[in-house]
């Protein structure tokens, strides 16, 4: 889980423009991300972890913080450990 979060932080870092955020902070509410951000996060998850997200996994709740994103990736690993 920590490794997953580290990778997400790495990806989010340039977008946050030097602002430090906690893993549970909602980056949509911070107003630092633009309208194509969700697309990029989805592409990042699918490419990095070679998974195809189900439509019900792609929601504001699941993509709004480092913790939330790590959670859906971790859940996938639990379901299909070979992924």
């Amino acid at each position: 889980m920590d490794k997953i979060k580290e990778k997400i932080r790495e990806r989010i870092k340039p977008i946050l423009q030097g602002n430090e955020i906690d893993d549970d902070e909602n980056f949509f509410e911070l107003g630092l991300v633009h309208s194509l951000f969700a697309m990029q996060i989805i592409l990042f998850i699918e490419k990095e972890y070679k998974i195809e997200l189900d439509p019900d996994e792609v929601s504001l709740e699941n993509l709004s913080s480092i913790d939330a994103i790590a959670e859906i990736i971790d859940e996938r690993f639990k379901k299909t450990p070979s992924v």
Partner: peptide, 9 residues
């Protein structure tokens, strides 16, 4: 789908 960041993703 649903809106995530301003416009329907």
């Amino acid at each position: 789908g649903s809106e995530i960041d301003g416009v329907s993703t």
